[in-house]
């Protein structure tokens, strides 16, 4: 396989790190969600909410992983697909919905 030409601005690398940072933020939000869900007495609703938050986090991780791989392989990486962007945002919004359900 041909080694991709190196971009002097390191744009793909910076974008990859941005995805990593965002995944880290999602992880922090997910851990806080799990803490809220399992706080005090564990109820069925709490466990379900916790599982939903874990699934959303996994979904985000999957999108980030796919994008990072696409960035690494291509010589001239294609722009982010709107579907991926919408997927990442969907995970975020659903996490907030879970949060609202847990808080109230």
């Amino acid at each position: 396989m041909k080694e991709p030409a190196r971009d002097p601005g390191l744009q793909p690398e910076r974008t990859r790190l941005a995805w990593r940072r965002t995944t880290l933020s999602a992880t922090v939000a997910g851990v806080l969600a799990a803490k809220t869900a399992l706080h005090g007495s564990t109820s069925v609703a709490g466990v379900v909410a916790c599982a939903a938050c874990c699934a959303l986090w996994l979904g985000f991780l999957l999108i980030a992983h796919r994008r990072i791989r696409a960035l690494a392989v291509a010589d001239r990486p294609a722009a982010l697909a709107p579907r991926q962007a919408a997927g990442a945002v969907l995970c975020t919004v659903l996490l907030a919905v879970c949060a609202a359900a847990l808080v109230v």
């Binding site: 941005a18 965002t22 933020s25 922090v28 962007a85």
Partner: peptide
Amino acid sequence: LANERTFLAWLRTALALIGGG
């Protein structure tokens, strides 16, 4: 790619707000 990074920065802001909640 720069546009994508800006998008991700806003997404981090959103996640931080949710974490704050």
